[in-house]
Design a protein around this nucleic acid. Structure first.
Length: 423
RNA sequence: GCGCCGGUCGGAUAGCGGCUAUUCCAGGGGACUGUAAAUCCCCGGCCCUACGGGCACCGAAGGUUCGAGUCCUUCCCGGCGCA
């Protein structure tokens, strides 16, 4: 169901280049994993995805389960079917809702794209809708970046975690998710790689809570394994333990010893115990050291370029992150010299390409200028987000391809240094 | 010339006697890390001993009032109508 071959190990670092084989295609690693939470990469059509060098997409158990239960058509497929680049045809209805929640869930390979897919367990929502909100913590940085006003940082905790699972109270009402339900949903969604149900802890949780939560996550991991009925899906176990070294090591040893086909490192990195970034790198170091070397390792939710370079260096194989897609929608376009905001006045009427020499379809086929893209953003044209998203995803995937090549050619460290210098 | 209507931050707006003048757009700045995010936050007249404070301000000038963008008078400007 999942084969992983390491083709080359870097001599100076723990970086490795490999191939991950799934029933729906192969993934060369290290690889970026594009986020398609609701069963669609936001702003893109199924036809756009193959043009972005994408190898693997991650969708979310919680969101798909909740939206398919309540909405006939998840809102994020509104862009429509694509025609030639630059055109959007009227959207087509996507039917899903009915009476039986689980029966309505689509197989993501039919619904989203036919290539390799992974699904997250919904575990992150236990945190992000729960203590994440209560503590004003996001995935990274320790605060909700959307709010400058400190009084607004803390919001209502919408989750109640018990030993058995998590009770949610979101916009749709109440719901309950546990390891068995998550696996059942993930089996219905049919991804090539599914993830064990876990509880990420907040950086503001103390040692005692983090330890207790970790024990729960381990229990849920075993239950997730036991709940499996399909033989064609791989399952990744998740290492937790906050920023506590002994807990991370314990977790990596425990999870690493279970019959998972791969492993993931999860968590939220905040300011409580030193700089968030250093904290994350330590966590990867502590965890990776105790995971079986021959199996694939995924870093959950991490995604800035510098983070990817460091994570690759520490032996991680795949990374998923909303940065390329979200920033694209928000007007941040990536180039090898860093990112720029396409909405700024300086780009009005500009004849410059997004990035000269870029071989993404938007730059090389459409030859879209910054001025034109800015115009689309200003007009709130749906193609603005779409074209920006295509460019950004291509940029990240292309970068990872270069990283792979550099590892295979034994010059990863040099490439990292060289590329980082321009950012 | 007469009569109506109107002049509020770059544009458009709210405000109908009560303390720091509203909102939207445009403009400037910033954020975004297993997506309740095609989103959110900040700035936007002048001055200062600048995480605070002072002074202005609603076409202009007077007036009424404890208090006026808001009421009155005159003037200026714009639109419409009538001569």
């Amino acid at each position: 169901m999942l084969e992983f071959d390491i083709l080359k190990k870097d001599s100076k670092t723990n970086a490795r280049a490999g191939v991950l084989k799934t029933p729906h295609g192969i993934i060369e690693t290290p690889s970026y994993v594009v986020v398609g939470t609701h069963g669609a990469v936001r702003c893109l059509n199924s036809e756009d995805i193959p043009r972005t060098l994408t190898q693997l997409i991650i969708s979310n158990t919680y969101h798909l389960w909740r939206t398919f239960e309540h909405e006939p058509r998840p809102a994020y497929r509104l862009v429509g079917r694509s025609g030639p680049l630059g055109q959007v045809l009227p959207s087509h209805p996507v039917h899903g809702a009915g009476l039986d929640k689980l029966n309505n869930l689509p197989d993501l390979h039919d619904y989203m794209w036919p290539g390799p897919i992974m699904t997250d367990s919904g575990g992150f929502q236990v945190f992000s809708l729960g203590f994440g909100r209560e503590h004003g913590m996001g995935k990274f940085g320790g605060i909700d970046s959307r709010k400058d006003d400190i009084s607004l940082k803390s919001e209502k905790n919408l989750v109640r975690v018990t030993e058995d699972g998590a009770r949610f109270n979101d916009n749709y009402g109440e719901s309950y998710l546990d390891a068995e339900t998550s696996v059942k949903i993930q089996e219905k969604l049919g991804a090539d790689i599914i993830v064990a149900f876990d509880e990420p802890t907040s950086p503001r949780h103390d040692y005692a809570y983090t330890k207790k939560s970790l024990e729960r996550t381990h229990k849920w991991a075993l239950r997730s394994l036991a709940a499996r009925t399909r033989k064609d899906q791989a399952m990744y176990g998740v290492v937790q333990g906050g920023a506590f070294r002994d807990l991370r090591e314990t977790s990596a040893k425990f999870i690493g010893a279970q019959p998972f086909e791969g492993f993931a490192i999860g968590g939220s990195y905040g300011e409580s115990m030193g700089a968030p970034r250093e904290q994350m790198l330590s966590v990867i170091r502590w965890s990776a050291a105790h995971l079986p070397e021959e199996k694939p390792r995924h870093l959950l939710g991490i995604g800035r370029i510098e983070d990817v370079f460091d994570a690759v260096e520490l032996g991680m194989d795949t990374f998923d992150c909303v940065i390329p897609t979200r920033e694209a929608r928000h007007g941040s376009l990536w180039t090898k010299f860093g990112r720029f905001d396409i909405k700024k006045g300086v780009w009005q009427g500009s004849h410059m390409k997004i990035q000269s020499g870029c071989s993404c379809p938007v730059c090389s086929e459409m030859k879209l200028t910054r001025g034109k893209l800015r115009e689309l953003f200003k007009a709130k044209d749906l193609n603005a987000g779409r074209l920006a998203t295509i460019h950004n995803i291509f940029f990240f995937n292309d970068l990872l391809e270069k990283i792979r090549t550099s590892i295979k050619e034994g010059r990863f460290s040099e490439f990292k240094k060289e590329f980082s210098a321009n950012l």
